Simulated assay, not measured.
Amino acid sequence: MAGPIIRTYKGGSIIYFEKDRSEDIYVLRQGRVVLTYTAIDSGYEVKEDVRLGEFFGVKSALGKYPREETAQVVGGATVLVFKLSDFETFVAEKTHLILKMMKVFSSQLRLVHKKLREILGQAEARNPAFELMNVAEVFYKNNNFEHAAYGFAKYLEHYPSGAYAGRATELQDLARKGTPYPINMPPLVYDAASTRAPMSQENLQNIMKPATEKTNLGAGTDNTITSLYNRAHTFLNVGKFEEAAGIFKDLMVRTDFKYDSEKKLVDNALFQMGVCFLKLNNLDTASNTFSAYIKKHPSGESVKESLFHLAEIAEQQGDRQRAGMLFGKVALLPPERDSLSQKARQKAKELST
């Protein structure tokens, strides 16, 4: 076994960034290292100190998925760095370390599940249909296209009329083509109504009617916020932009949300309306809508994308200076290493020449 190597970092150094990919595993030997991540329950940034002698970066290295946090040195630190193969050899004969890690990981997993259930107002775990869709999307976001496509196919096989069928069909097609996860895809939101039995053909046809035809739908039609949002997004993805805009407009005035996740969808409906107008090539209305979203929800989850679309519109309208300025602003918004920031930096560079 080659064994770990020793690295010394100056204060302020970044050992790794969130979303980095690496199989290195670290042990804090001396000094101070702070892990920064976003809490799933509040959405706020959380900082957590690594204790002396403690491993960090283990889960992402073993699972071979992107880092979940940023590790930064405060005031200088010395760490031991294991390559994954060396680490596996190291712990193979140390049963107490394996058991300790299993207990820690199990405790963390239970905490995550508990917080998710609290967020969603659930007393029990979410239904298998949602979990299958969620797993497929996690694979997709990590560019594991083959497993993602398989997951979406299984969802469609078992839940052909499920709440996420339109979304699964779209993502399955994109994953099979090796297309990166779409940046404008709204977050997957749990819909308690999706636990019920499959819909009848009559109700399924009713659900697929445009917003203008829905005023006299029967009581069996699913008009929950989540289902309407998913329906509108399905219309958007199949090119029925006017129908989608009509549903998003209806959602904007809904006040009967029970959970924070539903309120986020209501808030985000204004942004999605902007996307519809953009697809319809109604640039002025799209620009006004994105601007209204930013003004109304300055901390909203789609502010960065709204600015990006405003930059695209400015470029199409020939205002290169404004477009370059907006692309530059997008590139500086967190997270600065995502695909949207990379595209924005490239566009700003092109417009400056």
Rank of each mutant, 00 (worst) to 15 (best):
S261V: 13
E243F: 07
F257R: 04
T234C: 07
K214L: 15
I183Y: 00
N184W: 02
L251H: 08
D191I: 01
P186I: 03
I225A: 09
D250R: 10
L217H: 10
Q201A: 15
L217W: 14
I247F: 08
Q172P: 03
K240D: 12
F235T: 02
S200M: 06
T226V: 15
P186W: 02
K209P: 07
A193Y: 04
S261C: 05
D222Y: 05
F257I: 06
A168S: 10
L217F: 13
P198V: 02
Y181P: 01
E243W: 12
N230L: 09
Y181C: 01
D256G: 11
F257K: 08
G239D: 09
T179S: 11
L251E: 05
R196M: 13
F248T: 00
A244R: 06
Q205S: 10
F235E: 02
H233E: 03
P186V: 09
P186C: 07
R254G: 02
G239H: 13
L217M: 14
P198C: 13
Y229F: 15
L228Q: 15
K240N: 11
N206F: 11
Y229I: 07
T179A: 08
M185D: 03
R176A: 10
T169G: 06
D250E: 14
A168Y: 01
A168D: 09
Y259C: 05
S200W: 01
N206I: 12
A219T: 13
M252T: 14
A197F: 05
P182A: 08
I225G: 07
L171I: 06
K209M: 14
K214Q: 15
F257S: 13
N184M: 12
E243K: 00
D173C: 06
M199Y: 13
N216V: 09
T224Q: 02
D250L: 04
S261R: 09
F235S: 07
K209A: 04
D191W: 09
D260R: 14
P198Y: 01
D256F: 10
H233Q: 09
T179W: 00
R231D: 02
H233M: 00
E202L: 04
T195N: 14
M199N: 11
T224Y: 02
P186F: 03
V253W: 04
A175Y: 10
F241N: 10
Y229A: 03
M185Y: 02
L236T: 07
E242K: 13
D191S: 13
F241K: 07
T224D: 05
E243Y: 09
A211F: 05
P198K: 01
T221P: 04
V189K: 00
A244L: 03
L217T: 12
Q205E: 15
T255Y: 05
L171M: 03
N223A: 00
G218L: 03
L251N: 05
H233K: 02
A175I: 07
P182C: 12
K177G: 08
L204D: 00
